[in-house]
């Protein structure tokens, strides 16, 4: 069964439309990259899936049922969210943080049980964060923190993962580690992954499908091979890009007027 369907979804803030009659089907077990310029509605798209925003027209179906009819709890059983890297106000330990993903399952009980603890431990082990389980979130680096939040999403045991620029503040090594982990989850556990990113090159390397959002509600979807190309990117991002090939997949280098490799005028 198709996990998620957007049917003619429209959304806008005030008078500016952000998404216009967006229709798309997310197959179970696929890895989507949502890309586009700032303000093109990437986060809006994710927030609608998360239930924070409701479409102004059209409908979102999850497993054939309108998203609006899902309760908080039911939605939390289906999808988990990883946000941009941030430091929370209070100093929870890594293990406490990951355990929080289990709390909605037995809502009114005061304590976690042994099952919750072993699932949280497994999630920490999978993201290679078990070694600092006792440290607080303020005591570890940004990349480690982001892996902890990924561990929390895994401990929630949802078939879908939503990620909003999870690697935007991370260095190359930590970016790659997160993407590797996600791809591994997709292959080994059949997770459906929707990821908002600015990195077109990582999208080419890791994702099966791309949703490229333009300004004023235009969009293109498909495989990275079909959607991401010089012409498309130059049109939507309004810049010049150089396109090359690594071995199988493409890569893009953005070029400005003063770049050393700036295109001839």
């Amino acid at each position: 069964m198709n996990r998620v369907e957007f049917q003619n979804v429209t959304f806008g803030y005030e008078k500016t439309p952000v998404l216009r009659e967006l229709s798309l089907t997310v197959q179970t077990g696929s890895f989507w990259a949502i890309v586009g310029p700032n303000g093109s509605g990437k986060t809006t798209f994710l927030r609608m899936l998360d239930g924070q925003l409701k479409p102004q027209a059209g409908e979102i179906l999850v497993e054939g049922r309108p998203l609006s009819s899902w309760s908080f709890r039911q939605r939390a059983e289906k999808m988990s969210l990883v946000r941009q890297e941030f430091v929370p106000v209070f100093g929870y330990s890594v293990f406490e943080t990951v355990l929080m993903a289990r709390s909605f399952r037995r809502e009114w009980s005061l304590f976690e049980n042994a099952v919750d603890r072993s699932i949280a431990k497994a999630a920490l082990a999978a993201t290679d964060t078990l070694k600092f389980a006792d440290r607080t979130l303020g005591q570890i680096s940004g990349g480690e923190r982001q892996r902890v939040f990924l561990a929390r999403a895994l401990a929630q045991e949802t078939p879908m993962l939503l990620l909003d620029e999870p690697t935007s503040h991370l260095d190359l090594k930590h970016q790659i580690r997160i993407f590797d982990l996600l791809r591994q989850m997709q292959i080994e556990q059949g997770k459906t992954i929707l990821l908002v990113t600015h990195d077109l090159n990582l999208a080419c390397q890791y994702c099966d499908r791309v949703l490229l959002l333009g300004t004023d509600g235009a969009y293109i979807q498909g495989t990275p091979q079909t959607v991401l190309n010089c012409r498309q990117i130059e049109e939507i991002f309004e810049i010049k890009v150089f396109q090359g090939t690594v071995r199988r997949e493409k890569f893009f280098v953005p070029l400005g007027h003063y770049s050393k490799d700036a295109p001839p005028k």
Binding site: D50, G51, Q52, F72, R73, M79, A101, S103, F104
Partner: peptide
């Protein structure tokens, strides 16, 4: 934060 809490079923 509310976004995180919502995604965790609160």
């Amino acid at each position: 934060g509310p976004e995180e809490a919502r995604s965790m079923g609160v």
